[in-house]
């Protein structure tokens, strides 16, 4: 009896298999940088944790899956302890329609 297809090793052209190779890099640095970026936009620890918790945001949520929720929180706090949160005030003049696609 021939082996079941699911047990055969995947071939490089198989579109349904994930193939990856190692590339040197550091996802911890990626997380630190993202935290710094959003702190420049005024995001505090709670805002940032929400960004990491939300599965809709693949970049941040992927990192949370990698490091786990506890370590993610610790890392967010450690970065903010260094760089703080930049308070910025944004004013659009004149105030804009918040639902521009649906008319006024």
């Amino acid at each position: 009896m021939s082996e079941h297809p699911k047990d055969r090793p995947a071939e490089p052209e198989d579109p349904f298999k994930m193939f990856a190779g190692g590339v040197e890099g550091d996802p911890g640095l990626m997380l630190d940088c993202l935290v710094e970026e959003y702190s420049r936009m005024g995001y505090d620890a709670d805002d940032l944790i929400a960004l990491f918790d939300n599965p809709e945001f693949l970049a941040t949520h992927g990192l949370r899956n990698l490091f786990g929720p506890e370590e993610t929180r610790e890392r967010v706090q450690a970065v903010l302890a260094r760089c703080g949160v930049l308070r910025v005030t944004v004013t659009a003049l004149p105030p804009e329609n918040p639902f521009p696609c649906h008319g006024s």
Partner: peptide
């Protein structure tokens, strides 16, 4: 990004990647 990647052979065709070293 996922947790530690499975060892060679756990998933057919996959390779072992160093833990926490993917970007």
């Amino acid at each position: 990004a996922h947790g530690p990647v499975k060892k060679q052979g756990d998933r057919p065709g996959s390779v072992e990647l160093p833990e926490h070293r993917v970007w």
